[in-house]
Computed example of a mutant assay.
Amino acid sequence: MTGVVDVANAKRRTRNGRIAILGAAIAWSTAGLGQHALEATAATQIAGRAFFAFVFLLGVVVFTERGRAIASLRSLGLSGVIVTVSLAISSGTFLFALNYTSVANVLFFQAAAPMLAALLAWVVMSERIAARTWLAIAVAAVGMSVMVAGSLDAGALAVLLPFVMTTSFAVVIVITRHRQEVSMLPATCASQVLVLVVLAPFISIGSATGSDWTIFLLLGFFQMGLGLTLLTVGARMLPSAEVALLTLLEVVLGPLWVWLAYSERPTATTLVGGAIITIAVIVQATASNDPAPMTAPVLAVPAPDSS
């Protein structure tokens, strides 16, 4: 009888994990939809989302840590500092990038973060990379090259910002994998405070309309805060490969929402490069015998999508 109960509990855990990860991907996919409706300056957009994300995440941290929020953050040490700074850069450059290039371009760049994280771990921590992962990295590199070539006419920032976003998110993945035994949620919350502090001199409150503040709240609570919280829950219930595969829903839905609402059609190079990167992610995510790919950190973030 015990075995039957254990199987039922395992199935329920898997189902709940999948629901959480799919919910996170759906939440993240709305970033471009919200950003396109904003009239505030870029710095104000990022700060507005960061403020409400901080409020939401602070509530989650206080509830889950039960009075140990500050102590938990301190216990992370240098790892917590690196995650805080890297996630602040990733989430900040994500919205900045949406002001200079298409939603599809940003999201497909972000999809390459797990492979970049594996490469970074190999360079910094000498972590072995399986043959399958090397193949995924090579394929992703081709896809990113295609998109970079197609974005050059939009200016350097159209390439630089998505690259910085993806690289900083890869750093977050590496650190959170290295410190799997602790939750990085307090560092996630602190990252939004850092975003606010850095952008404070550049914020123009007067540039934000009444509707902008509503969108800031929705982006902060739903797109960023809820998305991170759901992934934090779901990533502990599913294998890393499955998490990586399910989060691809964001890459599919993000451009779709913007195309339906604003008729923003991705360029041919973005579609081709994005398709190649998606193939690379599926190659890595469906690995069964290789070491678990670095795609599902305990905190897991965003994209700001990470983002």
Rank of each mutant, 00 (worst) to 15 (best):
T2D: 11
T2L: 14
D6F: 13
D6W: 07
D6K: 11
A24V: 02
A24L: 01
A25H: 03
G32R: 02
G32W: 03
G34V: 00
Q35H: 11
H36A: 10
E39Y: 05
E39Q: 11
A42Q: 00
I46N: 03
F52V: 06
F54Q: 02
V55C: 12
L58Q: 14
L58T: 12
L58H: 07
T64H: 03
L73N: 08
R74F: 14
R74V: 08
R74K: 15
S79Q: 13
V83N: 02
V85D: 06
S86H: 09
I89N: 02
S90I: 07
S91A: 15
F94Q: 01
L95T: 00
F96K: 00
V106K: 01
F109V: 00
V123S: 02
V123E: 01
R128K: 14
A131H: 06
R132F: 01
W134K: 08
A136T: 01
I137M: 06
A138Q: 05
A140S: 13
V142G: 10
S145V: 02
V148L: 09
S151T: 09
L152D: 04
G155D: 14
A156T: 12
V159D: 03
P162G: 08
S168D: 06
A170Y: 05
H178T: 05
Q180H: 12
M184Q: 12
A187L: 05
T188C: 08
L194G: 09
V197K: 04
L199S: 02
F202K: 06
G206F: 04
S207G: 04
L217H: 09
G225W: 06
G227T: 02
T229I: 10
L230N: 02
T232W: 09
A235E: 11
L246R: 06
L249A: 13
V251G: 01
V251N: 09
V252K: 11
P255C: 10
P255N: 05
L256D: 04
L256I: 11
W259E: 14
W259H: 15
A261D: 08
Y262A: 14
E264Y: 13
P266W: 07
P266M: 13
T267E: 12
I277N: 04
V283L: 15
T286H: 08
D290R: 07
D290Y: 06
A292C: 04
M294I: 13
M294E: 05
A296T: 00
A296Y: 00
V298S: 09
P304W: 07
S307H: 05
S307I: 08
